[in-house]
């Protein structure tokens, strides 16, 4: 769980890390604490998974990686724990989750969002995943988005007053 002081840290890094040689020292000055405290807290947040990683967050649309397909997989319940992490670890997969089936209407229990420069590339990557999983995947499909009907940003923290 996040501590109250973490919200100040989220807000201070919302636009990114300071692009200066001592970014953690600069954050510490803004937050009124020491660099060691900032480093310790960031290390803790990475360990608990509250921070997924620190680095470049590419704008994949600007970089031409514009196609994505939601691949859905029917994987035997007892095999999911072994296979799920292998799908998630692939470079082309941005999200990978186990979700409930809704039988008989919906048989798929693993969802993996697959990205590429074209829908053909996405289809090729899904075929690679199918080979990787083998017969444990009893069926799969790729659902391409045809149209965005609504998109509002999920905000993590309130923007500072402009």
């Amino acid at each position: 769980m996040l501590l109250p002081t973490d919200h100040a840290l989220i807000k201070a890094t919302e636009a990114g890390l300071p692009l200066s040689p001592d970014p953690y020292g600069e954050l510490a000055r803004r937050l009124g604490c020491s660099r060691a405290e900032v480093l310790g807290r960031l290390a803790g947040l990475i360990e608990t998974g509250a921070i997924r990683r620190i680095g470049v967050i590419p704008n994949h649309y600007a970089l031409g990686v514009t196609a994505n397909g939601m691949s859905v997989w029917d994987i035997a319940d007892e095999a999911v724990a072994e296979i799920g992490p292998r799908i998630g670890a692939l470079a082309a997969v941005s999200h990978c989750y186990r979700r409930p089936r809704h039988l008989p209407h919906w048989r798929y229990n693993v969802f993996a969002m697959v990205h590429g420069v074209s829908s053909d590339e996405v289809i090729g990557k899904v075929a690679e995943i199918a080979r990787l999983i083998g017969p444990a995947a009893r069926a799969h499909e790729v659902l391409f988005s045809k149209r965005i009907l609504k998109k509002t940003g999920l905000r993590l923290a309130a923007r500072p007053a402009a």
Binding site: L2, G16, L17, G49, A50, V56, I57
Partner: peptide, 16 residues
């Protein structure tokens, strides 16, 4: 240039 959305921590939104 917009090639990189941000440089910094990627927070797990569910932890928020």
């Amino acid at each position: 240039a917009g090639a990189v959305s941000r440089f910094g921590p990627l927070w797990n939104s569910e932890e928020m």
